[in-house]
C-alpha cells in the first residue's frame, strides 16, 4: 500500500501519526481514502478540486505537473510540500 507522510500541521487530524498508508493509484484517490480513516484531512489538502494553493504533492521525492492526478504505485511514498517557484 502506498505510504503517506502527513505534514506536521495535519498530524492533529491523524492523532499525531506522521506515517500512514492508504489505497489508491493516484494522489487524489489516496487522499479520498485517507479521509475515510481520518475525516477532515481531504479538506485540509484540497480546495476547489485542486491541491490547496501553494501545496505540491511529491511522489517518491519527485513533484510533477499532474498534481492530484499524479500516479502512485504500491511501493510509493507521497509527501505534501510547499510548491516552489524561482527568480
Amino acid at each position: 500500500m502506498p505510504k503517506i507522510i502527513i505534514p506536521s500541521q495535519l498530524r492533529e487530524v491523524t492523532g499525531g501519526e506522521a506515517n500512514v498508508s492508504a489505497q489508491g493509484s493516484t494522489v487524489l484517490e489516496l487522499i479520498e481514502n485517507l479521509d475515510e480513516q481520518y475525516p477532515g484531512i481531504r479538506d485540509r489538502l484540497i480546495e476547489d478540486g485542486k491541491l490547496r494553493m501553494g501545496l505540491a504533492a511529491a511522489v517518491d521525492n519527485e513533484v510533477s505537473s499532474y498534481g492530484l492526478k499524479q500516479k502512485v504505485s504500491e511501493g510509493s511514498t507521497v509527501q505534501f510540500i510547499p510548491a516552489i517557484s524561482g527568480g
Binding site: 505534514p7 500541521q9 489538502l45 490547496r52
Partner: peptide, 8 residues
C-alpha cells in the same frame, strides 16, 4: 484576512 495553517 485570517491566518491559514494548512487549511485551518
Amino acid at each position: 484576512l485570517h491566518t491559514d495553517s494548512l487549511g485551518k
